[in-house]
Design a protein around this nucleic acid. Structure first.
Lengths: 141, 141
DNA sequence: GAGGGTGGTTACGTCCAGGTAACCAAAGGC
DNA sequence: GCCTTTGGTTACCTGGACGTAACCACCCTC
């Protein structure tokens, strides 16, 4: 009943070289603060630097530049400079970037479906922890 | 041709409260150093603390405890204490934890498929950057 | 009574992701 | 001459993730 319905995932890297594990490098990008949000912002077409900045009011200019550079370096995002004045720059997903949308969608969907359960679990865990902590206070006092 | 084949992913959170965005909380867990590896270690059955530690030689005891606690708090992992002596503790995936294997598998698979392209892209990006940097050195010198 | 094997916790130090703010060039408006 | 807008870069600082090492209780064996 609680048997895994998923085919076994091979452990993606040897542990003696987890520093250059390919899966880790992807997870690191997915896991950083802004990459995923930027990829989602670009999913329906190219956007200019300023538009992205205004779409994500909390991102600093520095992090926007840096995150876009990393995505470009990984080949997930294209950067096009238009020779206007002042110069305008457009960012868009590459084909590989587009293809990353599928697994991201799986994750986003899972997160949205399970978010209530996770929240419940956290609440009851914290509640139980507080109980135990209270008991310890009593014993110590 | 380069049109997105994926149905549009709704932006998963409002940006005025990205601190308690459900998707972010999942990505933070996925993105941390050990959670994913532990989930993969547990995919084919319960394992004891010591077994997990020996499976991941690079993890410190502190991080193993901490990561397992977080996974337990989120309801992804069950912790069972056996009243033997010395006490032994077994960790296993909950049903929700099992269900997370599917999106993780998507990501792992994507990473493995695209890893060569990413590496190529990084190499040529870094090569180009070195070129530009070299040119700047010449101008400055 | 010293040492080993359970599964932890705690104090402490380090390192880096990320935020803040100042600065840049070029051209246009006034 | 000064301010604005474009898309950056740079120096500096902080918070938190993570690692290291010591310590704990428990009971066993030797």
């Amino acid at each position: 009943m609680t048997q895994t319905p998923t085919p076994k995932i091979p452990i993606p890297c040897e542990f003696d070289d987890l520093s250059n594990c390919p899966v880790r490098s992807v997870l690191d990008r997915i896991g950083d603060k802004w990459s995923t949000l930027l990829i989602l912002q670009l999913q329906d077409g190219p956007k200019r630097f300023g538009v992205l900045r205004r779409s994500l009011p909390d991102i600093s200019q520095r992090m926007l530049t840096q995150t876009l550079r990393n995505l470009q370096r990984d080949g997930l995002v294209d950067r096009t400079v238009f020779d206007t004045v002042p110069p305008s720059v457009e960012y868009s997903l590459t084909d590989m970037g587009q293809s990353l949308l599928t697994p991201i969608a799986g994750l986003v969907n899972w997160a949205q479906v399970n978010q209530p359960s996770i929240q419940d679990s956290r609440d009851s865990f914290d509640h139980a922890a507080a109980q135990i902590d209270g008991a310890r206070q009593v014993r110590a006092g």
